[in-house]
Amino acid sequence: MTLTAEPVNSVATQEVSSEIFDRSDYLREYPHEQITFFQDPASGLKAIVAIHSTTLGPALGGTRFYPYADESSAVTDVLRLSRGMTYKAAVAGVDLGGGKAVIVGDPASLKSEELLSAYAKFVQTLGGRYITAGDVGTNSNDLDVMGRHTEFVVGRNTEAGGSGDSAPMTALGVFVSMRAAAQSHWGSASLAGKTVGVEGTGKVGYELIKLLVAEGATVLATDVYSPALDRVKADFPQVTVVGSVIDAELDVYAPCAMGATLSDVTARSITAEVVCGAANNQLTVPAVEQVLRDRGITWTPDYVANGGGLIQVAGELKGSSAAEVTAAVEKIFDTVAEIFTKAESDSILAGAAADAVAEARIAEAARRAANRGSAS
């Protein structure tokens, strides 16, 4: 097996091809500490690891295995996701930085033990600056394979020494965030009787539906992957399966699949009064949030709502008990409430309020590190 890695350091921004550093405002406006491209021709592996920040600790983020239309799309996605992880960790109060990885290809046809092993060996070469976990297209079984070749992996099955699938905790975080949004918007945290449209019924969407049904919500669900919908139909016969939820009559829209479903067009047409889901990067551009706000729609910043999985794997690194992790995830309710209160008091959007909370923690950590450096 031939292993090749091509690290790109942001210090060299002006000295490399414009196809890399000038191709995306995520590199110009949100510089990353390190971007590394991995390739293993024998297994078909093409992977990108983006480390956005290690100010708060080693960069942690899942590995997304996805059939991107082209490699440029993969780069854009990993840059957006890794920056989001920095803010997610800061808001969640965990001592971790932000990173993310993508493997380019269709996991249904390309995933193999050989490929996962090669990828894990690449992760190991980063020396702990990046710690991987699961994401779209990867699961705990895949992480078990990776764990045989790198120590820098979390979210493995409990039998392999990990904390297991993070989907239930991610869903719990979205659920309590939705309750906090309901409290802010309607004056009651109860979702009983509310119509919630869950877009994406994979690992997290399925667990969210379970919580919503138990709460007494009316649930509409959709997914492009029919086996995922079949599972929902079998386990939750009271759920209505529809072709699309974003344009259905809803109280709450819960995007739990891929991001960028809220554009200027959809933000002006949705009927939901609350938007809260697990998907990353739900807004096509930040300006969409203002469109939602102008229509009186309450949007919960995605990286706050979907932080439960990160809190779980951070707890795994610390040796926290399951009860301690659950309690920490449930506190996301208070974080969301704090963000809405700050947005109201400062007359800013919820996204800006969440960013301010995250940036304040990152700045404080950077200040302490600088003081330690000057003292030594």
Results as ranks from 00 to 15, higher is better:
residue 325 V to T: 10
residue 267 A to K: 11
residue 219 V to G: 03
residue 142 D to I: 13
residue 312 Q to M: 13
residue 122 F to I: 08
residue 20 I to P: 07
residue 325 V to N: 07
residue 322 A to T: 12
residue 279 A to N: 15
residue 57 G to Y: 10
residue 201 T to A: 13
residue 50 A to Q: 04
residue 283 L to C: 06
residue 33 E to A: 09
residue 167 A to P: 02
residue 368 R to P: 09
residue 264 D to R: 13
residue 79 L to E: 08
residue 13 T to F: 11
residue 26 Y to V: 04
residue 279 A to W: 08
residue 349 L to T: 08
residue 226 S to N: 03
residue 376 S to T: 14
residue 248 A to H: 15
residue 357 V to H: 11
residue 199 E to F: 09
residue 109 S to Q: 11
residue 136 V to N: 09
residue 134 G to V: 10
residue 214 A to D: 05
residue 157 N to T: 15
residue 330 E to H: 15
residue 30 Y to H: 02
residue 141 N to C: 13
residue 10 S to M: 13
residue 250 L to Q: 02
residue 288 V to K: 02
residue 53 S to L: 04
residue 273 E to R: 15
residue 217 A to H: 03
residue 171 A to K: 01
residue 103 I to N: 00
residue 165 D to K: 01
residue 107 P to W: 00
residue 80 R to A: 04
residue 356 A to E: 06
residue 33 E to Q: 13
residue 321 S to P: 15
residue 204 V to C: 12
residue 28 R to M: 10
residue 357 V to W: 12
residue 62 G to I: 00
residue 50 A to D: 06
residue 123 V to M: 03
residue 289 E to I: 14
residue 154 V to C: 12
residue 91 V to F: 03
residue 170 T to M: 05
residue 315 G to A: 06
residue 258 M to D: 04
residue 314 A to N: 04
residue 84 G to M: 02
residue 50 A to L: 06
residue 243 G to N: 03
residue 111 K to D: 02
residue 106 D to G: 05
residue 262 L to K: 01
residue 251 D to M: 15
residue 155 G to I: 00
residue 279 A to D: 07
residue 128 G to T: 06
residue 180 A to Y: 01
residue 240 T to Q: 05
residue 11 V to D: 14
residue 289 E to T: 12
residue 312 Q to H: 13
residue 316 E to N: 12
residue 221 A to V: 12
residue 252 V to L: 09
residue 98 G to D: 02
residue 328 A to F: 07
residue 21 F to V: 13
residue 100 K to L: 09
residue 361 R to F: 02
residue 49 V to K: 05
residue 86 T to G: 07
residue 212 L to E: 08
residue 237 P to S: 02
residue 127 G to D: 07
residue 310 L to V: 04
residue 107 P to E: 00
residue 29 E to D: 13
residue 83 R to D: 09
residue 354 A to C: 07
residue 13 T to H: 10
residue 166 S to V: 08
residue 184 S to R: 12
residue 259 G to K: 03
residue 194 K to R: 11
residue 221 A to R: 05
residue 84 G to E: 02
residue 335 T to I: 14
residue 137 G to T: 08
residue 136 V to W: 14
residue 142 D to H: 14
residue 144 D to G: 14
residue 40 D to F: 05
residue 274 V to L: 03
residue 167 A to L: 01
residue 372 R to Q: 15
residue 269 S to V: 14
residue 88 K to S: 07
residue 112 S to G: 04
residue 338 E to P: 03
residue 309 G to Y: 00
residue 192 A to V: 11
residue 245 V to E: 00
residue 155 G to S: 06
residue 98 G to Q: 04
residue 29 E to Y: 14
residue 344 E to Y: 10
residue 167 A to E: 00
residue 239 V to L: 06
residue 192 A to M: 10
residue 358 A to D: 10
residue 218 T to Q: 09
residue 173 G to I: 06
residue 155 G to H: 07
residue 244 S to K: 15
residue 292 L to K: 07
residue 373 G to F: 11
residue 81 L to H: 01
residue 376 S to K: 12
residue 1 M to L: 06
residue 157 N to L: 14
residue 72 S to M: 15
residue 219 V to D: 02
residue 40 D to W: 04
residue 4 T to I: 03
